[in-house]
Design a protein around this nucleic acid. Sequence first.
DNA 1: TTTGCGCATTAAAACGATTAAGCATATATT
DNA 2: AATATATGCTTAATCGTTTTAATGCGCAAA
Lengths: 337, 337
Amino acid sequence: MKKKRVSLKDIADKVGVSTALVSYVLNGQEKEKRVGAEVVIRIRKALEEMNYKPNFIARSLRYGTTKTIGLIVTDIANPFFSSMARHIEDEAYKSGYTVIIGSSDENCDKSDLLVETLLNRQVDGFIIVPAEGCEDCLSHLIEDKMPVVMVDRYVPGLVSNHVVLDNYTASYNATLHLLNKGYKNIGLVAYKSNLIHMRERVRGYEEAMMFKGLEKQTWIKYIRYNKLKTDMNKAIEVIGSKEGNNIDAVIFTTNTLSLAGLYEIHGLGIKVPEELAIIGFDGNEAFDFFYSPLTYVKQPVDEMGKEAVRILLDQMNGSKKISHVNLTSQLVIRDSC
Amino acid sequence: MKKKRVSLKDIADKVGVSTALVSYVLNGQEKEKRVGAEVVIRIRKALEEMNYKPNFIARSLRYGTTKTIGLIVTDIANPFFSSMARHIEDEAYKSGYTVIIGSSDENCDKSDLLVETLLNRQVDGFIIVPAEGCEDCLSHLIEDKMPVVMVDRYVPGLVSNHVVLDNYTASYNATLHLLNKGYKNIGLVAYKSNLIHMRERVRGYEEAMMFKGLEKQTWIKYIRYNKLKTDMNKAIEVIGSKEGNNIDAVIFTTNTLSLAGLYEIHGLGIKVPEELAIIGFDGNEAFDFFYSPLTYVKQPVDEMGKEAVRILLDQMNGSKKISHVNLTSQLVIRDSC
DNA sequence: TTTGCGCATTAAAACGATTAAGCATATATT
DNA sequence: AATATATGCTTAATCGTTTTAATGCGCAAA
């Protein structure tokens, strides 16, 4: 079967000393532990020759930490999350941490199961994109003093760390941009969800409309996460029809909504921006190929990932400080509005 | 600090028995090991009450297996690999396996480092998208009897498992499709790479051209992976100019190449398909928004991921069979050619 | 000669789980 | 009555590493 890896014991036997000495040398403690100079050399040589590599599992058991971070996103296949994951991995690797990823599909049960699985695997901390209804599971985690950083959204009332976009301002500014361009009947397409990031994006829109005295003109369509296509189809059809209240601009509050929305708009042959102006959240390089490249709210996904890791590392090192990071977005203006 | 998790010992103490009995009950061996009926009940109750969860690390150390798969892709932020990763994770989780992902950026040193890291973490097997120059590192792995499945591409001459697309046929058929549509000056844009998947895609194109007696018309542009933008810019400028040999169709051999290529085509205002027909590899939903939705070679990424996991599990269960899976692609015909 | 100290090293416990082997005690078989 | 068998449980080793406590030895001071 598999060739056995060399263990500390193998080295110790070869050199003719106990494992303790080898361990000391390995961890650079040969000075404090007063290992004989000549023995140090022989041990070093043996380690080299036998190509010794420490067994992380044994170390983990001994130390009670695994140098592993659990990352739970809604879907790793979603470009927004996969690029965030990439940044998280890079940052974590720098500090010797490894990342285990799971996808919850916005499903609380799946998320809880993932947390459970990762806990059993003794991860040292979590970076979580919380799904709806996960409050309990998360609060238990935090009560048990497990380091947790929430990203993209957070659970209001839960005293814990998070790194999110300033969604309110992002949405407010996007709406304002449309208003300043002269659009009045601005609609918003959001996921049907109580999650804070959605609510904030809705609120930013509403308050911008209110600010201009257009609260009567607000038009919000809520899409069910698992009925994306059908719900979006209906939504866009309404916009294209007479009942659409002459909607002349629409904001999509996530990249998946933008994608699904553009499909329908494309399908109905609605002209952008002449008949309908558009702003999306989270760019997608390919949206530039839409006949009218998309104006979108650009999230600093790299910072979000890296900052989350930094805070998590800090927590794992014993910091008791609670961090709430609100990142600012950038409105990338293209042709669609 | 962190609330300590309950261990077998805690349960044993509470019930007043040895850890052995608890372990037997836990693993459903109460019959074979003749645990007293009444004791079984008390242990079950204690396990429930104290909410016992086994420590995976301890188990791993004992068993010498971690129920963990190492996945090395070129870049998890690339939608092709992130969706493959998603399928791999889902399939692995079904069998109680967890996945650790790393991105090599097509860089052999990074890839080797990842392999090393994951080996130290005692993963039970690898699913690898091999980078160029990784032959040695991989062959060592395989010599050491570490279960490995290569995906997307493989290392010729290395006796090991792989799950790849039938790239030759895919490319041949794509070229044939263009030829049958009357295009004669067909170009191909590939990465400058000796990796087999690239070579096969090139070969499929060349042989299809040869088959129609157009070997003189072949036009291949090799793009450097880390000079994507500049090299692509030059390539497309050539196509748009007089020196372009009147190229009337082009095949992009990966999704990143398609994306970069479309940017340039878009920028130069080249009309598709009137002035230039296009076929890409790996769709991207958003390519549908190109003013001329992209005809592309659709890879069965779900099958590729799932099949890789199945083969790997098989290997990890001791199978000595070497599997070479060649998946068939589908040419999704849209407007771009 | 005894005590104390510095030095180099080892033995052993610990982390949490699994499991082969062993030990009583009770019951059944000759 | 002596032996065999069944039953129910414990002990201890094991996986690979870290780390505390202990040990042996030589040498100097009392």
